[in-house]
């Protein structure tokens, strides 16, 4: 590690950065890792490099977890997302350190990013029990019917996270999907895998049910096509795929008519529209009896 034995006689205990699938932290079934070095070239970690099989396992875990997360009350989902912010706040120093080592940021800049990410989790936490009122409607139809429309989660969302500002970028795509009850399979920024896995630890200890978020560190160009063509994925968020051949990904997604969020600047972040883009409007007509 970076601070080997220069200032202390104690030997560091480095972390093994593995994938996050179904609430567990498995190695890639492929056995592959990617070596991460800090800006000065010192070894930092061997990060798991996810494969097609890992992607499929992640989708299966997401599908299994989605209905339960969606059927949690909005209040409950809000508390869980707020809990993520709380736990993140308590581990700020770790994230700052990881960003300094992977993104080469000055500590002050890294801290700004971590704090922005925490605040973004708080912002989304507050949306869970409001978004249906903003995106839904009571519909005055011409007949004796009680008719309402509500936004529901689209299901399993596969995401290529923004390739810059690893923690903030990851938050900006994962949090809006979670607000309404989607489950997520996300490929984080290739350049900052450490914060993605550390965020997974935060999620795992914030009462987020296992499988609701699945994190596949690795090469987005390798993983995205498998996710784009996977028949059990409902939506493909390409926000961070601007540098990939994303047109091909959108075409692959068309095969099963996935909802697609196009690369940045596709959808403005921190807007209700960003959250509603990953929802389906369900309209229910209830008959009123004649009195």
């Amino acid at each position: 590690m970076t601070t080997t034995t220069k200032t202390t006689t104690r030997l560091d205990v480095p972390k093994t950065y593995k994938l996050f699938i179904g609430g567990a932290f498995p190695r890639s079934e492929s056995g592959r890792v990617t070596e991460v070095r800090d800006p000065k070239g010192a070894f930092v970690a061997n990060v798991a490099r996810a494969s097609r099989k890992d992607a499929r396992d992640a989708v299966r875990a997401a599908r299994k977890a989605q209905a339960g997360w969606a059927s949690a009350t909005a209040y409950n989902r809000g508390q869980v997302l707020y809990r993520v912010a709380e736990v993140l706040e308590g581990r700020k120093a770790q994230f700052v350190d990881e960003l300094v080592r992977t993104e080469g940021l000055k500590p002050a800049r890294a801290q700004e990013q971590v704090e922005a990410a925490i605040d973004l989790w708080v912002w989304h936490a507050g949306w869970t029990d409001k978004i249906a009122q903003v995106g839904g409607s009571a519909n005055p139809v011409a007949g004796p019917y009680f008719n309402i429309s509500v936004p529901e989660p689209t299901g399993v969302v596969a995401v290529v996270a923004p390739q810059q500002q690893g923690l903030l970028g990851l938050t900006s795509v994962v949090a809006p999907a979670l607000v309404t009850g989607n489950a997520v399979v996300v490929v984080p920024a290739a350049s900052s895998p450490l914060v993605a896995i550390s965020l997974s630890e935060v999620l795992a200890t914030s009462d987020l049910p296992g499988g609701v978020v699945n994190v596949l560190t690795g090469d987005p160009a390798e993983l995205a096509p498998w996710l784009a063509s996977h028949a059990d994925v409902n939506a493909l968020d390409l926000t961070g795929a601007g540098d990939l051949d994303w047109v091909e990904l959108e075409q692959a997604a068309a095969e099963t008519l996935k909802r697609v969020v196009r690369p940045e600047p596709g959808l403005a972040p921190e807007t209700p529209q960003r959250i509603l883009a990953l929802t389906e409007t369900k309209t229910v007509w209830h008959t009123k009896s004649r009195l």
């Binding site: 409607s137 519909n139 005055p140 139809v141 011409a142 007949g143 019917y145 008719n147 429309s149 409007t281 309209t283 229910v284 007509w285 209830h286 008959t287």
Partner: peptide, 12 residues
């Protein structure tokens, strides 16, 4: 529910 094939411009 307890009806079918109803349409209205106010109803998504």
């Amino acid at each position: 529910t307890n009806t079918f094939n109803k349409f209205d411009p106010a109803s998504p």
